[in-house]
Structure formats: structure tokens, C-alpha cells
Design a protein around this nucleic acid. Structure first.
Length: 875
RNA sequence: GGGCCUAUAGCUCAGCUGGAAGAGCGCCGCCCUUACAAGGCGGAGGUCACAGGUUCGAACCCUGUUGGGCCCACCA
């Protein structure tokens, strides 16, 4: 038997335990292993990133699921890997260059990409090492990268085939332009933020009547440089005569028509809208309907280009001011007023996005999205919690075509070649090395490659044993925030290419926030660094604190105090096992003794164990981490440690060898099962303790490779009720002691009168030990004597003689003093209430409070007097 | 503008299909009792947001109001 220190020290065990797991191969699985297949693929973190608290939660959950599934005997694999994270990684390296006073253009494309690879070599894999600190055990032999050779080939294949199927096309369409990154973005990379802007009204003069004209309003005055029409509602009577007339652009040499379109809201502003088809999604739609010219007025920096006449060269915000001034000078400006509206910002660079016409690559999403919708509707993909399915489906229903090309350098190069002269396009899996053909410079949206993740990590497009065994995967664990970015795309592309859902279950968790539900942010100073917490409290403590507050779909608040509390729990377990080990006398977990040898407390703890086991199983099955954690916490602490271990001491410290053997087997069994049940949540401490517990010939080597507990006994309601009676008596007697300041070391003589006498009598040794009883007697009726206190409990009463228990003189003195104070307070309160001016002038609430205070003191005084009288009768 | 979630102790939250208000932390008191003082025992503290309704009975179901939070969206 291993000697355990008095306190659990995570540092002393975590590293060694993890090394054992890894070298034992418990994390590794092969397709032809025994057991029902079970598979999770990790949401690949950014290869150059480091572990933040959100990763910790996401991966702790996956690890817990994996550990339990392995213990259940499944052939379970967890595939790890990392993402090249296109924009994010490129931005990091560009920032490094900036510090050297360089831009990526100074290096050139090839050298820049080389530089990113260097950075990847240097920092890559850090995050996976950090996952080990957390106790996570994916199958390290299967590590994948979204940008490795095998994954590249799959990406090309998917692109080429979608192109051949007509589902990828190149088009000149309105896209979201990031003027900082100089790249297109997809719709979901745009975040809408409310900003206080302005609504500028001005007049467009008629071409044939410069003094007349039509008033329009805009939040972006500079876009008037790209206006090619004015639109009004067709049924707006104010404008029926004007539709069809031409207006003249005040600063540019062109005229354009007033058109009628249903889109216009006659109630808003003047009821007339300026139309800028190249820089606004609505206007673009109108432009298409009316075949309007689409004039792009910006450069890639969002500066006014040559279409802007004298405003050329100004950036969009300078141009906004300049245009307003010019309108004012021309006498066309009507008014400028404040206006709160939503403005799209790049989720990457945070600058306002510029809608622009641009040649880009798009995925036609409709046919793919329909398959994904169907799969969620018919339950082939199930969300936990279910409520996540509805917004998911609605999002897919309204999905627009996906712009997948990015004007970046770090990522999968688009496998398309343009002919320099003819402009012809060829898409090909193999490089085209012919004169006149150059490869498209763009790379793919990072989600284009990560959408393939669940099957490319299993070897797709090859027909591998891994694909046949583990695909579709079992469950995807991820925050709800990337359901649209990633989960939706995996569902679509997997159904399209493999004909299967990528995973049967999507388990969404929430975001980790601070203890008040606030988002963690550096500027707010409430960021929790998981590695720092692991260092200070241990990995189990961090994991357990997260699990204690985690339920499907809900955000997870986390506070340092709670991690400290979880650490104490680990320590409590540690000490419970220490107690067990020092009393088991070599007994290891095995079969239970015959039922007739079991004491009430044995049957009680076994029944409670079964309750906890069933509840934990249900919680685990439903990914209800909080329930699993609190159920097991409460079983371990409130029932096992506080009651059973205390009760067990009676027999363990006695000299009945049969009874000792019985309690030892029960204790070993309960501790063993508890450690198993807790192992998915707190793997290190349970592994360490379990090895000590089973440290005997024939004992298994690792809890991680152990079996999941099955029922050892049935729930027994009668036994639980009987034990509850005992607990009730003990608790009442303890309360009596506490209220009378009877020292724990002092034995009290007790006479019980109870309807449950038959039950309680055989429990006398237990009662005596747990409640600190000296002489225990039973009586049929109330014991009415002087100086005897009555204690009431559910099934009866107890009578406790006070003589000898309490230092009567000292207690009386104390009571007198307290009485004195109370009487003074009561007098003060009564005096106040007798004061008419107080009662009349003070607010009613204050007077009421004073009355309550008076009544409270009166109650207290009568209590003290009663008690004082009882004591005096003793003296 | 649409949708979702939420309102229970000082804080963070449990309360499953309606059947006598719970936990952890914090607070107060007593104890170093031989697993654990990082502990034990006891205690205080809630008109379950508000207003109606259904019911023998409502924290829970229905309606409305108000307060928080989140997501989606092309109203100039």
C-alpha cells in the first residue's frame, strides 16, 4: 500500500500520471479493436495559438466524454490536430514584420509564406502540449493539420469537383471588402455594430431644371459619387410625375434617371433613395433589376478612385466630409442629423467593411444547404441542447452564396489558372504548367478546408479502415458561436461528398465568462489563463470548476474562488481515500459480503451509491456536466465522507473482526466506484488514488483503462428512510449541543422517546458515536424532570439532563449579561415608538422596521428568561 | 425589424412530468474529535421580477408587463 501525503499535491502526480497514460497506449485506438466504434474529432485550434480558457472547456468536455466511452468498452478514438487558420495566422506574422518595419509586400509572396511556415515550426504544437497539461488524451498518433499534404489534396479535390458540378463559380458580385486586409470576406466574417452616425439630406437637381430636383437622404454621403439612379416607391403619389426624369450629378459629368421600385419605403426620409449599386447590397439588387450602371468608386484601400472626379485620392471618411462641404457650397445640402444605425465591421481587422463589386470565387450553397437542413430536421444530426437546431436551420434557409476567395497569401491556393490573354479559366487538380497560364493568386477561406475536417482526418477520400469504422463521427463538441462558421459547413460538405452526416450529435457548450457573466477581455482584466490556474490549483481543480458550472448551451461563469473550491474537493477525496487505505488492512475492491452481514449504514451507502451512479450516468449521457459534477460532489462529501466514514469508524475501531471485514469490503467497493464515476471529470487525482486502492496482485494497472461502474446494489427506499431517521436524531442532538455550547468532547446522557424505537435501539452504538452520547436510554413517555431539556425530532423526542454538561454559574452569568443588553435594547426601541413625533414624521418603512426590531427583542428576552429559569432550577 | 435565452439567498446557480424552498462560495457561533483546520458541527439569510389566470394545490402551466443577455437582419 502506498503512503499518501496528508495533502493532495497535483504537481507531484500530474506529470508522471500523464506520461504513464501516454506510454501505456490507452489513448490509442485502431479500427479493428474490440468494441462499438466511437469517434470525436477535435475542433482544430490555430496551430500557432496557445491554450485559452475556451479551449480548456471545449477539450475538457471532449476528454471527459472520451474517458467515459473508453471505460464503457467502446473502441473510442479522439483525433487531434491543428488549423492553419488563414487570416488569423497571416495577421500575426504581418504584425511581426511590422515590428521590423516591413510589410509582406517587401518580402514578396514566396518569402512571406516561408516566413509563416517558420513561425509555424517555432510555435506550432504548443497548444497540443498544453492540452496534455489539462489531462486531455487524444490519440496522438493521429495528429493532423489542415494544411498538410493529405489535407491539401482533399481540398483540391473538393474544389475541383464542386467546380465541375457547377457549384463553384467565379463572379463579379458585391462582396464585403476589408480595406485593411485588402481581402474579401464572407458574410459571417462581418459583425454588425451599432454606431451613432448621421443622416445627410441633399437635393439632386433635375437635368433640365437646376433649381428643381429631388431630395434624398444617406448615411454615407461619399457614396453619391457612385450614384446611378434615384428610386421612389411606384405608388408614392408625390413622385408619380417625376419618375423617368433625369437628375444631374452635381460634381460629376453624368445624369441618371429617377426610377420606381417597390423596395423604397415611402415613410422613410423624403421617400426617395439614391442608388449606389456598387457599394450597397440593396442598391445592388435594385441596380440588377433596372440594369443600372455599377460604378466602383473605391480603391482597395477604400480611397476614392478616378471615378470620383475631384475627390479622387481621399479616403472614404475624408471624402464623406468633403462631399458634404461641396454639397453645402453648391447650395444642395438640406440637413445633417444624428442617426443611429448598424455598420458592418470586419471580424478580423475591426475596420468598417466596404461593400464592393469584385471578381471572386463563390460556392452555390442552396443544394448543399438543403441537404443539411434535412439532416437536422429528420434527426440524423441532433443538437444538444436541442434549441440550437432552430437558429441553425433558419440560418441555412437564408444562406447566400459563400465567397470563398481571399486575397491573402497564407492558405490553400485556389486550383484555378487564368489565361493571360484570353482570360479563359481552367480549374485543375494538377498544376498547369503551360505558357500563358498563371495560377489564380487567391487562397481559400480557412473554413473551406476545415469543413472537410471530420472525414479528411480519417483518410478521406481514400476508403480507409478508419473511415469505415469511425465515420460518421459520434459527437462534435464546440461552442455555439461557431455553429454557422464551421458546423454548418461540415454538415453541408459532408453530406454532399460522403453522403453521410459528419457527426450524429453536436454538443454545444457556451463561452467561459467571469463570475458575473461578463465576457473575459484583456482590457477589463478579468481574463483567466488556464495554464496559470493549472499551475496553482491543478488540472483537476480547473476542470472540475468548469464542469460544475457547465450545462449544454449555457455560458460558463468561472471564478478563482470556485477553482479553489474544486481543489479542496480533490483534497477531500484524497483524504477520504487516505482514511480508507489506512483502515482497509489490505482489502481491495471486490465482491460485497453477504447481505445479512451488512449494517444499516452499509445498505444505506450502497443505495446512495446506486442513486449517484444512476444520476451521474444520466447526466453524462445528456452532457449535463453540472449535474454530473454536483451529484458526485455531494455523494462524495455530504454522504460518503460526512456520514458513512464517520459511521464506519464504529466498527473499524471496534474489535468485531467479522464486522470489520464487512465494512472494509463495502468501503473498498464504494471508494472504487466513486473514483471510476469521477474519473472523466478529474482524471489525475482519481487515477492516483485508484492505483493506491487497488495496489495488490491482480489489480488493474490504470483507471483510465478501467471499466465503468455497473449497479452493485439496488436502491432501497426503506433503508434510506431508516437512515434518514437516524440522521434526524443525530442532527437534532448536535443542534442542541451547539446551542448550549456543549463541547464536542463532552458526552451527554440521552433518553429517547420515539415511534421509531425499534429501529433506533439496534443503532445505539452508531447514535452514541455520531451524537456524542454518554448514556443512552429509551423510554415510553416523556421524561418530565427539572433541569432536563427536550429535543424534538421527526419521529419523537430526546431528553437531555443539563447537569454536568454546562458550567451553570458561568452560563447564568453570560445569560444575565445578554438579558441585560436585550432589555436595554427593548427599552430603547419602545421609547422610540412611544415618541409621537417619531411615529408621525418618520417614513412608514422606518417605523415598521422599528416595530419589528422591538418584537424581535421581546422574543429574544422571553427565550433567555426561559433558559435562565431552567438553569436556575439546576443550581 | 425577426428569433432565442433568462429573472429563485449577498454572489454563481440547482430545483426532472405542478405536491411542505436547495447547493457551493460568502456571513455568524462553537470546536485542532486519532482521513482532511484546505477540516468538523451548528446557525442566520428568499412575497421564487411584477400583474392576472388555470388548479384542491403554482418557483414550475397560460396571458400580459417590466428588467437583463445573446444571435440573426440589406431600411437609405
Amino acid at each position: 500500500m502506498t503512503e499518501l501525503d496528508k495533502t493532495y499535491d497535483p504537481h507531484a502526480v500530474e506529470t508522471d500520471i500523464y506520461a504513464d497514460w501516454e506510454s501505456s497506449g490507452v489513448f490509442h485506438a485502431d479500427p479493428d479493436d474490440e468494441g462499438e466504434p466511437f469517434c470525436i474529432v477535435i475542433p482544430p485550434p490555430n496551430v500557432t495559438g496557445s491554450l485559452h480558457i475556451g479551449h480548456a472547456l471545449d477539450n475538457a468536455i471532449q476528454d471527459a466524454i472520451m474517458r467515459r466511452e473508453r471505460m464503457l468498452g467502446k473502441n473510442a478514438v479522439w483525433v487531434p490536430g491543428t488549423d492553419h487558420a488563414g487570416i488569423a495566422t497571416q495577421m500575426v506574422v504581418e504584425k511581426q514584420l511590422m515590428a521590423e518595419g516591413l510589410t509582406r509586400h517587401d518580402l514578396g509572396r514566396e518569402a512571406f509564406v516561408e516566413r509563416v511556415w517558420e513561425w509555424r515550426e517555432q510555435s506550432g504544437g504548443t497548444i497540443l502540449k498544453q492540452l496534455r497539461k489539462l489531462g486531455c488524451g487524444p490519440d496522438w498518433d493521429r495528429e493532423a493539420f489542415t494544411f498538410d499534404e493529405q489535407r491539401n489534396a482533399a481540398v483540391k479535390k473538393v474544389f475541383v469537383e464542386l467546380y465541375e458540378q457547377g457549384l463553384i463559380y467565379r463572379g463579379n458580385r458585391l462582396i464585403n471588402w476589408d480595406p485593411h486586409l485588402h481581402s474579401a470576406l464572407s458574410d459571417i466574417e462581418v459583425e454588425h455594430e451599432e454606431v451613432e452616425g448621421e443622416l445627410v439630406s441633399f437635393r439632386y437637381p433635375f437635368a433640365d431644371d437646376p433649381d428643381g430636383g429631388i431630395v434624398v437622404a444617406t448615411t454615407r454621403a461619399e457614396t453619391m459619387l457612385g450614384d446611378t439612379a434615384i428610386a421612389v416607391h411606384p405608388e408614392d403619389e408625390r413622385y408619380t410625375d417625376i419618375v423617368g426624369r433625369e437628375v444631374r450629378h452635381p460634381f460629376l459629368d453624368r445624369t441618371f434617371p429617377v426610377i420606381a421600385d417597390e423596395y423604397v419605403d415611402p415613410e422613410f426620409g423624403s421617400g426617395a433613395v439614391k442608388i449606389t449599386p456598387a457599394h450597397d447590397p440593396n442598391d445592388y439588387a435594385i441596380g440588377e433589376r433596372h440594369d443600372l450602371p455599377m460604378i466602383n468608386i473605391f480603391t482597395v484601400d477604400a480611397k476614392v478612385n478616378e471615378e470620383g472626379g475631384r475627390f479622387e485620392g481621399l479616403d472614404r471618411f475624408e471624402a464623406r466630409t468633403a462631399v458634404k462641404e461641396a454639397l453645402d457650397d453648391a447650395g444642395l445640402l438640406i440637413e445633417v442629423k444624428k442617426h443611429v444605425h448598424q455598420v458592418g465591421h470586419s471580424s478580423r481587422s475591426k475596420v468598417p467593411v466596404e461593400p464592393m463589386l469584385s471578381d471572386q470565387w463563390f460556392v452555390s450553397v442552396r443544394p448543399l444547404a438543403d441537404k443539411a437542413i434535412e439532416a437536422v430536421r429528420d434527426g440524423r444530426i441532433r443538437f444538444v441542447p436541442e434549441r440550437m437546431a432552430k437558429p441553425f436551420i433558419e440560418w441555412l434557409e437564408n444562406l447566400h452564396d459563400w465567397c470563398i476567395s481571399r486575397q491573402l497569401w497564407w492558405g490553400h491556393r485556389i486550383p484555378a489558372w487564368h489565361h493571360e490573354e484570353t482570360g479563359e479559366i481552367r480549374v485543375s487538380h494538377d498544376d498547369i504548367d503551360e505558357p500563358g497560364w498563371v495560377q489564380d493568386p487567391d487562397v481559400l477561406d480557412t473554413w473551406f478546408s476545415s469543413q472537410l475536417w471530420p472525414f479528411v482526418v480519417l483518410g478521406w477520400p481514400e476508403d480507409t479502415p478508419e473511415m469505415r469504422t469511425w465515420f460518421p463521427t459520434s459527437v462534435l463538441v464546440t461552442g455555439y458561436d461557431i455553429n454557422t462558421f464551421w458546423v454548418s459547413r461540415m454538415a453541408m460538405i459532408s453530406l454532399w461528398f460522403t453522403g453521410e452526416v459528419p457527426f450524429h450529435v453536436v454538443h454545444n457548450h457556451g463561452m467561459v465568462r467571469d463570475e458575473h457573466g461578463k465576457k473575459m477581455s484583456k482590457s477589463f482584466g478579468n481574463v483567466i489563463d488556464p495554464l496559470d490556474f493549472i499551475e496553482r490549483y491543478g488540472a483537476d481543480a480547473l476542470r472540475f470548476a468548469l464542469f460544475q458550472h457547465c450545462s449544454p448551451g449555457d455560458d460558463v461563469p468561472l471564478a478563482e474562488d470556485w477553482v479553489e473550491g474544486a481543489r479542496r474537493f480533490a483534497n477531500k477525496l484524497w483524504n477520504a481515500l487516505r482514511f480508507g487505505l489506512s483502515n482497509l488492512d489490505g482489502v481491495t475492491p471486490g465482491d460485497l459480503p453477504p447481505a445479512d452481514e451488512l449494517a444499516l449504514e452499509d445498505r444505506w451507502i450502497l443505495s446512495r451509491l446506486e442513486a449517484a451512479r444512476a444520476a451521474a450516468d444520466a447526466a453524462y449521457d445528456g452532457y449535463h456536466w453540472r449535474n454530473a459534477a454536483t451529484t458526485l460532489y455531494s455523494f462524495a462529501w455530504d454522504e460518503l465522507a460526512d456520514w458513512y466514514l464517520e459511521a464506519a469508524k464504529v466498527r473499524l475501531y471496534g474489535d468485531d473482526e467479522v464486522a470489520k471485514a464487512t465494512v472494509r469490503s463495502v468501503l473498498a467497493r464504494v471508494l472504487d466506484d466513486l473514483l471510476r464515476l469521477l474519473h472523466p471529470l478529474v482524471p489525475f487525482v482519481t487515477e492516483k488514488l485508484w492505483r493506491s486502492l487497488t495496489d495488490s496482485p491482480g489489480g488493474a494497472e490504470s483507471l483510465a483503462a478501467g471499466e465503468w461502474p455497473t449497479p452493485v446494489a439496488e436502491r432501497d427506499e426503506a433503508v434510506e428512510h431508516q437512515f434518514a431517521v437516524l440522521q434526524d436524531v443525530v442532527t437534532e442532538l448536535r443542534r442542541f449541543r451547539s446551542q448550549n455550547d456543549v463541547a464536542p468532547s463532552k458526552r451527554v446522557d440521552v433518553t429517547l422517546v420515539s415511534s421509531e424505537q425499534e429501529l433506533l435501539e439496534p443503532l445505539a452504538p452508531l447514535l452514541t458515536a455520531l451524537a456524542g452520547i454518554g448514556e443512552l436510554a429509551f423510554a415510553d413517555s416523556a421524561v418530565e424532570e427539572e433541569g432536563v431539556s427536550k429535543v424534538v425530532f421527526a419521529s419523537g423526542e430526546a431528553y437531555v439532563p443539563l447537569a454536568g454538561l454546562i458550567d451553570v454559574e458561568a452560563e447564568l452569568a453570560r445569560l444575565d449579561k445578554e438579558l441585560d443588553n436585550a432589555r436595554k435594547a427593548l427599552a430603547g426601541s419602545e421609547g422610540k415608538l412611544a415618541n409621537e413625533s417619531f411615529v408621525e414624521r418618520a417614513p412608514e418603512a422606518v417605523v415598521q422596521q422599528e416595530r419589528e426590531r422591538r418584537d424581535e427583542w421581546a422574543r429574544r428576552i422571553s427565550e433567555l428568561e426561559e433558559r435562565s429559569a431552567a438553569l436556575r432550577s439546576l443550581a
